[in-house]
Design a binder for these strands. Structure first.
Lengths: 337, 337
DNA sequence: CTGAAAGCGCTTACAG
DNA sequence: CTGAAAGCGCTTACAG
């Protein structure tokens, strides 16, 4: 356990009278060494406090046992919760996670970000961001597996693990109908993000089935305009319901409406997505669509591990296997009239 | 931008007719090269899509430009919010963050965790965990700077960046007195974590100044017992106020009490710590102590950077410079009677 | 079953 | 101002 200078394989070799090669083989549990040699090596490692240098190991072997995680907003519990689950699961298999943020600029990973990622030579990339479209060939040529999580991968021909967004949107639409809403608003995120449009699609269709049409002014992409614009729209058109792309948007909507004296849950219904209140174990006040995020995250981790460890399982994305999204009702629904 | 096989310095050297040495010098902006050489190198790098291998670079130079972040619970917005700020700030200076979780087992970093950390040869460690006491010499002998964030470092003779916990606890105590509480409970985290005891100290002293004594059964360390035990205690002693170590504990307390028909904000007051509602931009319902977490996080990042970049500034910990903790009132305070 | 040599892709002295 | 050589700490062929 004593340790002054850096202890390397060479030191273990010297101590045991073996070659660095043999020591390395023992530590990596490669075949061919005697029990006696194994014990000598382990004793010397313990005694000298040897710790492998993963940088050197990675350089030579080509595998850094590192997974890069790309995100835009770690504060959103959807990201921190899933990141926590995924990185722990990866850790159990000897992979560490290295974090890269695009600093909340957009839903995309750009060239600068990918440069930084690739310079770390990760064994895989798990991305909450979509790749900028012109980067796809670049990423593919790097040969590093790229798994998109929580976004649709199909526009890029990549593996994407995501929930049944359309059905989630439909559940929200039906719920607002049940609340008696006739003039709802969809507060989306970005107009060019597929999952945003999928939720919009499900929402729109469910409303239409109930005889409520959604006109263009009833759709606002909240991440693309000042938040004020969204609230103004809701107020000016006297909306009686809002379906938000996620709970983070819904939280602000509720806070802002209440600040204006509008009684959420009475004058207007608000529905979010992700059910982050459960992740935080907080009293539930916001009605939200729950897609079963824990299983979702586990599915993402398993997909990554299958690829990293060379299991070429024909894998169904989460969307086909998870239970249907459900509405978790809070206090922001309008009592049925 | 085309890239089939891995592009190395050798390829750039071949392309430009220079030595790898010179290419490396240009890319690292070391002195001594002509404008013309610089342009030739940059052109070739762009053309071939060269990306440095930080593993190789780190191995040779001794600096991996990596900071390890140690945490126990990324889902708590206190951690995700500060991690986000800190890792972005580090990124601006060319450092990436690599995450290590102790899987929520305890507030400590143990030997296994530190082995994993040190194997990555980070330039620094920023830890939300305290080091297990017997690991301190081991960590020190590694020579890697270790900054403790959000916990007191003094018990370990290490730099700790933390808030004025005692005053924070006192603010909570005074607030509960103002709510008319006479039988309050402190829902701490762990009995051996200094910041938990500091908040308890400030809380106890403020109550005493108001003529309310806190007996041992009015103190529960919520992370050490089943949550049920805490709630039972609150109910059985008919407590009229609860000060929780952090908002995550407070959220559960509020949810559980409400589930039992106890009206929080009327029958009982609940105060949390960290004001995570603001981080999430959510409507404020929980009364909480706010220590100014944004500045706090920036202070942690700056401290790390000062050390990494060799600025031996005599630095005052955050505790001496930040504004006093304030109570942010929500709906869980009991109206003054 | 064990060892001597080569090499991963860089950066660091050291020559010129 | 530029280059040839050595070496960071490992693992991978290849011999024996």
């Amino acid at each position: 356990m004593e340790q002054r200078k850096k202890v390397t394989l060479k030191d273990i070799a010297a101590r045991t009278g073996l070659s660095v090669n043999t020591v390395s083989r023992v530590l990596n549990k490669k075949p061919y060494y005697t029990k006696e040699v194994e014990e000598r090596v382990n004793a010397a490692c313990k005694e000298l406090g040897y710790i492998v240098d993963m940088n050197a190991s990675g350089l030579r072997s080509g595998s850094t046992r590192t997974v890069a995680i790309l995100y835009d907003d770690l504060v959103n519990p959807f990201y921190s919760y899933t990141t926590d689950i995924i990185s722990k699961r990866l850790e159990e298999h000897g992979y560490n996670s290295i974090m890269f943020s695009n600093n909340n600029r957009s839903p995309y990973a750009d060239y600068e970000l990918m440069r930084a990622v690739l310079s770390r030579k990760p064994d895989g990339v798990l991305s909450f961001l979509e790749p900028a479209a012109d980067l796809v060939p670049f990423i593919r040529s790097s040969g590093i597996p790229f798994v998109i999580f929580g976004r649709d991968g199909s526009p890029y021909g990549m593996l994407g693990i995501n929930a049944d967004e359309v059905r989630g949107g439909a559940a929200a639409g039906r719920h607002l109908l049940e609340c008696g809403c006739r003039r709802p608003v969809y507060a989306g995120s970005w107009h060019d993000v597929k999952v945003c449009l999928d939720r919009q699609k499900g929402f729109t269709e469910a409303l239409a089935a109930g005889g409520v049409e959604l006109s263009p002014e009833q759709i606002v992409y909240a991440r693309e305009v000042p938040f004020e614009t969204l609230i103004e729209r809701i107020v000016s058109m006297q909306a009686d319901g809002v379906f938000c792309f996620n709970d983070m948007i819904a939280f602000v909507v509720v806070a802002e409406l209440e600040a204006r004296g509008i009684r959420v849950g009475q004058d207007i219904a608000v529905v979010g997505f992700d059910n982050v209140q459960q992740m935080l174990n907080m009293p539930r006040f916001l009605t939200s669509v729950d897609v079963g995020v824990t299983d979702f995250a586990v599915c993402g981790a398993e997909a990554m591990l299958d690829i990293l460890e060379g299991r070429e399982t024909e894998r169904a994305p989460f969307i086909e296997t998870h239970p249907a999204p459900v509405i978790v009702q809070g206090k922001t629904s309008v009592p049925r009239t």
